[in-house]
Simulated scan of single mutants.
Amino acid sequence: AHRVRHLVGRRVEIPSLGITAPVVARGLDATGAIDPPPYEMPHTVGWFGSGTRPGAAGAALLVGHVDTETRPAVFYGLSAARPGAKVRVTRSDGSVAEFTIDDVQVHPRDHFDARAVYGARDPHRAELRLITCGGTFDPKSNTYTANVVVSAYLTAAP
């Protein structure tokens, strides 16, 4: 088991969805996808720590589970996000970057386009991607058939 370091002060808030969660740095899994926090931490969000920091130019990537075997997890309601809603990210220095949701998309796993999901649409602009599972659950593969991807853009920073 690998240890997860909680990054003091880092959290994400989506008031319109009632989400407030701590954020921990994560890497990539064996398939090249961002490794979410372990299932034992269902209400924690993972940030791709080798990538863009929230509020910096480029796309900062945050991932969270939609559920566990027994209950909803941190991003259970993410598919209900709507354009115009606010997302606040408290950074390690205590400052808050506020993003505004631009769109919500569902990307099928069998045609997953990492560039479209993980890449910045405008490399000079601060972007945020919130990613979780979506579609239908396939018990044979023990995975969901799609990913829900919320894109947001920096609208206020200290």
Rank of each mutant, 00 (worst) to 15 (best):
A73M: 01
S151H: 09
R109I: 12
G84C: 10
R71M: 13
T44H: 01
A59K: 12
D67Y: 00
R3H: 15
A59L: 12
D102Y: 10
A30H: 01
L7H: 09
H6K: 05
V66A: 01
A33F: 10
I34E: 02
S16F: 09
R82G: 04
A21R: 15
D122I: 03
T68C: 05
T52P: 06
D102E: 14
S79H: 11
A116T: 11
D35W: 03
F48N: 07
I19A: 07
P139E: 01
H65N: 07
A1Q: 13
A30E: 03
S95T: 06
L62E: 02
P54V: 03
T155Q: 08
A85C: 02
A114Q: 08
R125W: 01
G64Y: 02
P22C: 07
V89K: 00
G94V: 10
A33W: 02
L62F: 00
T155D: 09
F48D: 08
S95M: 06
V63F: 02
H124Y: 09
Y39D: 09
D93Y: 10
A156G: 11
S50A: 15
L130Y: 06
R109L: 15
W47H: 09
V66R: 10
F137L: 01
T20M: 15
R71S: 11
V106H: 06
D29F: 04
M41R: 04
P139G: 07
T31E: 08
V4G: 08
F75D: 13
D103N: 00
A157K: 04
R53E: 08
T143V: 12
G84D: 04
F137D: 02
W47N: 11
I34V: 13
C133A: 05
T31F: 15
V45W: 11
S16G: 11
Y76W: 11
S95H: 02
A30N: 00
G119P: 07
G18H: 12
P123Q: 06
P123R: 08
T136G: 04
P83S: 03
P37Y: 02
Y118P: 07
V106E: 12
D138K: 07
N142A: 10
P22G: 14
G9E: 10
T143P: 04
E127W: 05
V104C: 04
T44Q: 02
A1D: 14
V23L: 15
D122T: 09
S141M: 08
V66F: 00
P139C: 05
A59G: 03
P42V: 04
D103L: 01
P36L: 07
C133G: 01
A120Y: 07
V8S: 14
H124E: 15
T52H: 05
Y76C: 01
H111G: 13
A97S: 00
P54S: 06
R5D: 15
E69I: 00
T132A: 02
V150W: 01
T90N: 12
I14A: 10
D122R: 08
Y118H: 11
A80Y: 00
E13C: 12
L7F: 10
P72W: 00
V117K: 02
V4I: 15
R3G: 14
I19D: 09
A156M: 13
A116R: 13
V148H: 00
G119I: 11
G134R: 10
R115P: 02
A21F: 14
K140Q: 06
S95P: 02
V87A: 01
A85P: 00
H65I: 04
R53H: 04
D122A: 08
V24T: 14
A60M: 06
A97D: 01
G58R: 05
P36R: 14
P37F: 13
P42T: 01
S95A: 11
